[in-house]
Nucleic acid binder design. Structure first.
Lengths: 172, 172
DNA sequence: GTCATTTCTTAAGGTATCTTATTTTTAATT
DNA sequence: AATTAAAAATAAGATACCTTAAGAAATGAC
């Protein structure tokens, strides 16, 4: 979709931060290798994961990227990674894009929206156990790859409680 | 964006249902007048509101519309309303759309995505009181227009508890 | 291979939010 | 206006989930 071949590439190590909550971002990131997360830290200092981005995913704070407002999230590498930088000059103005690119974008946006809508329904109406089971079905490779505490943060429970959930599931 | 002028128009009364959870939808709806909601009913029979759609908003189950799979939500009029029907033949295939339309779509999708992302962050990391206050700031007209129990359902608390929240806020 | 660090598990007590039920207020219908 | 129905407020008891804390297991560093 984006012109990754000519894009600027950046290598980052685990723990490295590409965007800090409250800052205005210049870039979106396309993940070539590794895995990133975006997350918000609440008043109590707790971290809540908005998104995981393994290979071939994009990650950014879309509002900060588009409207140059402070970001609600931080973006950090959870593995050693390589990303392509997507800049506003390349991608900020849709009218500069080719029709073909716009169609690809529309399809990806739609798929993203479908997944995001499902997540909201889950947060509103599913039990934490069901949210965990859905996560394992939707992202089986991430379940292997990520520590429990990151998954807990994504589905909206504490690591201790997810540990309880797992034990209850195992007992069945 | 869509060709509302030639679209099929439908008048519906309060309480009328346009889509039932589990069914496959043929249409999306653009609201000309009135207000609709989409909601999921959980195992315990409780209703959880995904979206409100007042005038000039679109509403549908995007996954059901796009992929012809069972809908996760029902769509119902919460006021007497008039909607324009958006069919898959008009809007299912992006390659048939004009570039101008695709650009409009990309902008609307982006704005929608920004709002939806914020809602997820709110559900994960804000207190219920903060979620309510944010709702009143983001949708001041809807706060006047909608009964408390629908707002409670949207922000993810029971009506009784939202009533408590309001009382606490008023005491300050 | 040992030591240090991080992750995971387990458990007890606490809090936010829910459930159920009753009363009051508001809105809809005739 | 009177009647009915729906919405909102209030309160007491129940529960899902959190907090804190400690020990066990796994992972990474030297």
């Amino acid at each position: 979709m984006l012109n990754h071949k000519t894009a600027q590439i950046k290598k980052i190590v685990k723990g490295e931060i590409l965007l800090k909550q409250g800052e205005i971002t210049k870039y979106g990131y396309f993940v070539n290798r590794g895995c990133l997360k975006s997350y918000a830290v609440d008043n109590a200092g707790k971290e809540h994961i908005m998104q995981f981005a393994p290979e071939n995913w994009m990650i950014s704070d879309l509002d900060s990227f588009t409207n140059q407002v402070p970001s609600l999230v931080s973006i950090e590498a959870i593995e050693d990674s390589e990303v392509s930088l997507i800049s506003r000059s390349d991608f900020g103005d849709f009218s500069k894009l080719e029709k073909k690119t716009l169609i690809e974008l529309a399809i990806k946006s739609r798929n993203n929206m479908i997944a995001t809508n499902k997540r909201i329904i889950g947060l509103l109406s599913w039990s934490s156990e069901k949210r965990y089971l859905d996560f394992t079905e939707t992202y089986p490779t991430l379940v292997q790859r990520l520590p429990l505490k990151l998954i807990a943060s994504y589905i909206g429970v504490t690591p201790e409680y997810l540990s309880d959930i797992r034990r209850k599931i195992a007992k069945k």
